[in-house]
Design a protein around this nucleic acid. Structure first.
Lengths: 200, 200
DNA sequence: AATAAATTATACCGATCGGTACAATAAGTC
DNA sequence: GACTTATTGTACCGATCGGTATAATTTATT
């Protein structure tokens, strides 16, 4: 029947800006003023485009998982490298991301997960974050079970717990990155964590 | 000249209750209603006894450091046990604390530290938490440098970074405890973390 | 140009935030 | 008992929270 006024902002750019704010401040800590100011839009525009704060958070979190968390994956499957080297490159790619910037943000998931237990999160956000929290351990467990080289190293025998060791390390480095630990220091941590599960 | 009405609540008990709330919800997430309700007192009583929310948080955090964090220390210096055993007992004492309860609270410091970088904390609280965050690494580094058995094991050669490895693990297990990982699983993580720095 | 649909900006909603004024209550000293 | 001092409960303050009603503005279709 008829058209309408064109949206004056880019939806993906706004979503990315929202992601950055949630990353720094968490769900509860990020106010609508923070969000809309960083997104460069007004509140009604946000509500018409994304629904409400809860849905914005869900979409921002999915944006993070899709555009950030998965960006490290190629390191894990790069051809021509040993399993240990691929695993280390993958972990260091994540850790480098945690250390990035003058004001390191750590890990989006770890950051927001600290709010999960406080009961201040909507159920949907809590469920999404709980799932995301299991992502790394599940991924690593699968690799330990499937990669021939990993099996030869015996990693498949305690695949789930070996994966938990590394997931715990990455969760810990996220906090350390926020505390301004350097990438060089955290590489030492990653190296010795790998050594802990038998990769020395 | 004259006395006055007696305080009807125990100051330490109220402080402990406040600590529990901050532990679960963080500084920003804990509202004065949450706090005073759990403390069993009214707002004016809280303000007259502790000053304001910021000072209450400082006192609750000091209460935690004094009554909780230091409670694990004897494990580290118990006579008649090997260094590795003492170190493991100490770490597991912390991790067991993180796992305690139906709704595990993780680590007070790690929990609140996630708010440090968000800029929503008063400066004094930020400084206190930054100091507390370094406590474990500093303590372990000192032990690696001083304990004869630790030196014999060569831990003193990279004392600071070896301590960082374990501090990172404990920081990671705090999050895992919140995610309902069991003490048995996290004992595996601690064991392999110790193995990572050469204690196998 | 006229109309319909969508986005924009402003200004506001009730609820809750940290913090406080005030009066009533309970204890000490004299 | 009179008086002073401190604590208590209630009721409230301005600011900010997430969210929205309204009206002006911009676009597409006819």
């Amino acid at each position: 029947m008829a058209g309408g006024r064109k949206r004056a902002f880019d939806e993906d750019a706004a979503l990315q800006a929202a992601m950055e704010v949630f990353w720094r401040k968490g769900y509860v800590g990020a106010s609508l003023s923070d969000l809309t100011q960083s997104m460069g839009i007004n509140k009604p525009s946000m509500y018409s485009a994304f629904g409400n704060k809860e849905e914005l958070f869900l979409k921002a979190t999915e944006f993070y998982l899709e555009n950030k968390a998965k960006s490290h994956l190629p390191q894990l499957f790069e051809a021509g490298l040993s399993f240990k080297q691929r695993l280390k490159n993958y972990l260091m790619s994540i850790v480098a991301d945690q250390c990035e910037g003058d004001d390191p943000k750590g890990c989006y998931v770890v950051m927001c997960q600290s709010e999960v237990a406080s009961g201040d999160l909507p159920d949907s956000a809590r469920l999404l974050l709980e799932g995301a929290g299991k992502y790394l351990q599940t991924l690593l467990m699968g690799v330990f079970n499937d990669d021939p080289e990993a099996k030869q190293l015996g990693l498949h025998e305690n695949a789930e717990l070996n994966a938990l060791c590394l997931a715990t390390t990455v969760s810990g480095t996220a906090g350390m990155a926020r505390a301004k630990k350097t990438l060089v220091e955290l590489e030492f941590v990653v190296d010795h964590s790998l050594r802990g599960i038998g990769l020395s």
